[in-house]
Amino acid sequence: MIRLTNVSKHYGPDTRALEHVSLNIKPGEFVSIVGQSGSGKTTLAKLLFAEEMATKGKIVVGDWDISKIARSQVPTLRRQIGVVFQDFKLLQRKTVYENVAFALQVAGEKSKRIRDIVPQVLKIVGLHDKTHRYPRQLSGGEQQRVSIARSLVHRPKILVADEPTGNLDTIHAHEIIQLLKKINEYGTTVVLVTHDRDIVNSLKKRVISLAEGRVVSDIQHGKYVLS
């Protein structure tokens, strides 16, 4: 599903965010990518949805080699991968419904289909009664659930969640992780980027640890092993 072969990402000659990273994620897996700040885990996530381009190496998502993806193809890639961000990245002047619908509108979905799908997805994340609220009228946890709903409307095969609980309290963080587990149970491959030890340990899923831009461990049913 996702294969990185000898991938490096450099920002200028002195800043090496990732160095010779190789990994393989199978369809339906739930993988946590952990590491301290500056370890390169967010850079790795950004490479997956082409917010950044690799300096060296090959990245394959599905059957698509995105290492040298053309700028014009990036929107198509992003419509096939669900992405959840730490800061939610919601459109502040659009309602909950409009934020979720927007992801379908950009893909050219017909209005009728949008009217069918969006309420269903909002029901899955438990926001069906807050469709007309603006993001500022929601709690952090609710905003993150909107972000997850938006990432799901395409029915993506891959969901990349970059520190989705970073701005949330423990209770809301737990809710979000439960939601991600539920999504994974429906068959979506989930890549969770986090530095939250408790969350990783409670998941008991595959854990890939990064340090200074390199993979230092890759353990099935692993734990957060970094100090």
């Binding site: 949805f49 917010e51 929107p75 198509t76 992003r78 419509r79 992405v83 961000f85 990245k89 919601l90 459109l91 502040q92 002047r93 927007f102 992801a103 950009v106 893909a107 938006r150 395409h154």
Partner: peptide, 10 residues
């Protein structure tokens, strides 16, 4: 807003 629109596939 422009950045977010791009990130969700616009």
């Amino acid at each position: 807003e422009i950045g977010i629109m791009k990130l969700v596939g616009a």
